[in-house]
Simulated assay, not measured.
Amino acid sequence: MAGRTLLVAGVVATAVVAQGLHSSAHAEEGSAVAAASEPADPSLTEYVNAKQQYRLLVPAAWEAKGKAGADVLFEDPSRRSTSLGITVNPVKVASIEQFGGLQDVGDKLLDAERKKESTLGVTLLGSSSRTGATGATLYEYEYELDSTRGRKRILNTVTIFSSRLYILNAAFKCDKDGCSEEAQRGVALLRRLAGSFDVTTN
């Protein structure tokens, strides 16, 4: 999963570098606290990283892991192939729109996946943009990846705020023939978690 998160970071960072800008890895610690802005759900907690200025909901049972290149990585202990990670990189650009639109960034992301030797096929299932509480634009992508390592549903959220590039990457491993009804429930959870991600002010 961390490798895919770095792939996304590389795709977006390449676009930044192409404009004469620079990005580099940076990580800080965060903490999990009870969610206050979402409907009460005892299975979820809100993870807040005040220094890196972001927050999102995560299942209370999931474990936070240390992973090179990731600010934080959460795994489902009952299904290790299900994970969600965040990377944060400083950049010299004010917004995601300054170096690419929704489709442009999505095309670069999928092209990078297709070029990997392990990839058998990639299908974009949906993309959208939303405005966070701070006014930052967040690009969201969902695609199915068929590779020599299996079939996965991937969700990405990308934004820039306060001179930082934020990338959320979530993955759910499906059956060989596709995502079953049970898998769809797992993917639906990842959509909810990704949808809760936002950047914050101190």
Rank of each mutant, 00 (worst) to 15 (best):
K173P: 03
L165D: 01
A2N: 14
R164A: 09
S78I: 06
S180R: 12
T157H: 05
S43Q: 13
R130Q: 15
A9I: 14
D71H: 05
G195P: 15
Q52S: 14
L57M: 14
T131I: 08
C174W: 01
K108G: 15
L21Y: 10
L125G: 08
A9K: 11
E28P: 04
A112T: 02
S95H: 09
G20D: 01
Q19I: 12
D146L: 05
V8S: 03
F161A: 03
S95Q: 07
S23T: 15
A35L: 05
V122L: 04
L189N: 05
S162H: 10
S127N: 11
T200V: 14
H22P: 05
A136E: 01
P42S: 05
G178W: 02
L73H: 09
V187T: 10
M1V: 08
Q19S: 11
V11C: 08
L193G: 04
V72C: 00
D198W: 11
A70C: 11
K65Q: 09
G100T: 06
I167F: 05
S129F: 11
T159I: 02
S196H: 08
P90G: 03
L7A: 06
R55C: 10
V199E: 05
P39N: 15
L124S: 04
L189Q: 09
D76Y: 06
A94P: 00
V93A: 09
G69S: 09
D41F: 13
Y47S: 03
G3T: 08
D41V: 13
E38I: 15
E113S: 00
K67D: 10
T5A: 10
R192H: 15
G135V: 04
E29I: 00
K92Y: 10
L44G: 02
E113G: 00
A194T: 12
A112R: 02
S23C: 11
S23Y: 08
Y166L: 10
T119P: 00
E46V: 08
G69T: 10
A27H: 08
T134I: 05
L56S: 11
I167P: 02
S127F: 05
K92Q: 14
G101Y: 07
E38W: 14
L155K: 01
F197W: 12
F161D: 06
T5N: 13
D175E: 09
D198Q: 13
